[in-house]
């Protein structure tokens, strides 16, 4: 069965290693924090200016001066720090952040990503996404494999305005884990109970299948 958003987040959390500084995007990526093993040390960065982001505050303890990039009220963990936006993107541009997890509307087999604009329909802006994808070396995209009409979002070439070129390394969808390689999307894992046929049908881009593909372990 295809994963739900929490399932995607749970699988991505396995990619978060001890000692990592991690930037989580808005949407599914935010949920990843809930599934990270508690026996490892990880610090979450939010690009509006905090390292060491903690969970939501208890009711009545929320602080208007303490939010994440999704404008949600948060807390600061012991050891946290605050900084301005230039320093925040200095951390990102300077490759000090170990892992970036973000959402996408489309990903292409050459590693291009589109997630900020649908011409004529939705123009919300790129926020920090263009800075993140241009500099981060370890980018995981969290997304649904297809859109609401069942059309593939894992493409040969992006159709929407790009956020970044040739930058995505790994994709975790509701159906599969894929790696971007020179020859196409390499199928690494299947969601539990999802068949090869389902994945092939939902993938417009070139799918590279090498031997038996294991199921995700969640």
């Amino acid at each position: 069965m295809a994963l739900d958003k929490n399932g995607i987040a749970q699988r991505i959390a396995q990619e978060v290693k001890d000692g990592y500084y991690v930037n989580l995007g808005i949407g599914i990526p935010t949920l990843v924090a809930n599934f990270v093993r508690d026996d490892i040390e990880v610090e979450f960065q939010s690009e509006n200016g905090i390292l060491g982001m903690g969970p939501f505050p208890f009711e009545g303890e929320e602080d208007a001066d303490l939010i994440n990039a999704g404008k949600q009220t948060i807390t600061a963990l012991p050891g946290a720090s605050f900084f301005d936006s230039a320093m925040s993107f200095g951390m990102i541009r300077g490759k000090h952040v170990d892992l970036t997890i973000l959402g996408a509307m489309e990903v292409a087999e050459n590693g291009d990503i589109a997630n900020w604009k649908i011409p004529g329909k939705m123009v919300k802006g790129m926020g920090g996404a263009m800075d993140l994808v241009a500099s981060a070396e370890n980018i995981i995209v969290a997304m649904m494999h297809t859109n609401r009409r069942g059309e593939s979002k894992i493409l040969k070439r992006c159709t929407l305005p790009l956020t970044g070129v040739g930058c995505v390394t790994k994709i975790v969808t509701d159906l599969a884990v894929l790696e971007v390689t020179d020859s196409g999307f390499k199928l690494v894992e299947r969601a539990p109970g999802v068949s090869m046929e389902e994945i092939k049908k939902a993938t417009e881009g070139t799918l590279v299948i090498d031997g038996e593909i294991p199921e995700m372990k969640l």
């Binding site: 969970p55 939501f56 505050p57 208890f58 009711e59 009545g60 303890e61 929320e62 208007a64 001066d65 939010i67 999704g70 404008k71 949600q72 009220t73 948060i74």
Partner: peptide, 12 residues
């Protein structure tokens, strides 16, 4: 006023 855009909290 320091308005909060997205008030997100957890239970005690």
């Amino acid at each position: 006023e320091k308005r909060i855009e997205q008030k997100t909290v957890r239970k005690k």
